[in-house]
Design a binder for these strands. Sequence first.
RNA 1: UGGGGUGUCGCCAAGUGGUAAGGCAGCGGGCUUUGGACCCGCCAUUCGGGGGUUCGAAUCCUCCCGCCCCAGCCA
Length: 565
Amino acid sequence: MSDEKPKDNFIRDIINADLAAGKNGGRVHTRFPPEPNGYLHIGHVKSLNINFGLAADYQGLCNLRFDDTNPEKEEIEYVGSIKEDIRWLGYDWQDREYYASDYYEQLYAFAEILIGKGAAFVCDLSADEVTATRGTLTKPGQPSPYRNRSIEENLDLFRRMKAGEFSDGSKSLRAKIDMTDPNLLLRDPVMYRLRRAHHYRRGDTWCLYPTYDWAHGQCDSIEGITHSICSLEFEVHRPLYDWFLDQLGIHHPQQIEFARLYLSHTLLSKRKLLALVKEKIVDGWDDPRMPTVSALRRRGYTPSSLRRFAGLVGVAKVNSIVDLAFLESCVREELNKTAPRAMAVLRPLKVVLTNYPEGRTEELDCVNNPEDPSAGIRRVPFSRVLYIERDDFLENPPKKYFRLSPGHEVRLRYAYFITCTGVVKDPGNGEIMEVHCTYDPATRGGDSPDKRSPKSTLHWVSAEHAAPVEVHLYETLFTKRDPSELEEGEDWKANLNPRSLEIVPGAMAEPSLAAARPGDRFQFERLGYFCVDAPCSRPGAPVFNRTVTLRDSWANIIKSGKENQ
RNA sequence: UGGGGUGUCGCCAAGUGGUAAGGCAGCGGGCUUUGGACCCGCCAUUCGGGGGUUCGAAUCCUCCCGCCCCAGCCA
């Protein structure tokens, strides 16, 4: 499945203008800069798609750079998962895998240059004191009493900071900009903090670490990035990044900010997703209910459907929440064309064909994919006792119900027409135990010589041949479209959906499904798309995750209360 | 509140002074051995609101309103 041709957007407009003006010698070089402090999620796919997409469309390059400036939150596990997810999505950074932590020496040298220019100083204020003197949105800040130390003293102190002479938090390096600037980020921001923390890549060689604000722009510059694309919240940081670059007089990438993606009925905050994992509210970063790439993969989403989604949602500067339905329509569209069909009954109801010979079995031809003739045909066993979906039988149906009910005829897909002649109930609770039907031998394969055609076709499975399988059904993780919409006093977990996972234990599938392998995708006819779960399945005992349901117009009729009109 | 952004259909989103694309959702119909898929049709006289400029404005000016971001030694 090829991706759509790119739509124009405001970022492309800027790049086109830059190219027309001959900037950067006609080069386009972007980068994807994750912090290895969590797994990638669907929001990152949008960023990936923009950065790698731009590079591809303009014959440019896109680097992968881990922005690892905070040793306390970063782990090697996350580096691995991020690389795996990017590769799986189909983006290629070739050999350009970089780490901010590899630039620590260079950044340190840059800092000394700033100190040498009198543009940075060592400050002895504590973190709390810095906060207290920063001022507020409306009131200017107070200059640090250490602001006017000599260049020599600053240099000496800074080198001793690096050498480990001072305790954590006792000193910081700050840019000397303007404590009265209405943009708080320009009020002498901290560039380095003392922190004796083990870094997952640099070990214990450093005790002072650059802040993201100090590191990011220079890292982009070092890599020769032309267009540094980031999300909206960094818009107010841009003047700071520009200031650093101008002070240093080095290559100046252009930062462009876009609105990050939000998806309805879920959360895309790494902090909160981590909390769901840590508190075991979900089974891990790849729990199929999560919005992470690894979860979506496990759930059955394809790389191309995610890329297509990312391309289709567009790029703008307005914060917005995209409907989950849109993501779902992207997978459905692809899986409809590619997923082999199969029959599985989630909640079996026994059907006995009273006029079908006992002990007889026939193999019926079933089309593997009506959208793809090359997918061919398979044979599925049929016999006297079958299972159909409990939902497909109603003793007293509403007017618009076309499925099986007493006296009515339906078609069993690729099999026969059957007519319901009676039901057997549990004498105790009145529950329907089995349905009795007669079949019409003249309709073998599902066609009738007299051209009559039932209004409904049901999927089925031969009881004797059925493979018991486990099926996992998912609903949204949160009940509200915007889970952050909270009532007074509620915390962010208030809108968690208690029914987000339903394990269906007694499902019965056509025999071939017992051999399904992890990652295999199917359309269970009339139900939806399912993918064999990798962690939960065992050979011969597949567990099927429902990726997404089929569109269901009957459900709409029920929802709108029109089933009797 | 000071500063920085931003408001076009239920949800995304084109549009850059010439008379409101497209997708998703929804609704009607056709077709159908998946109430699926597919096909056809409908779905903003109006662009946050008020003034103004203009032959002509979502696009320009102006005032007002809403929403988002910034007071981490997080990113």
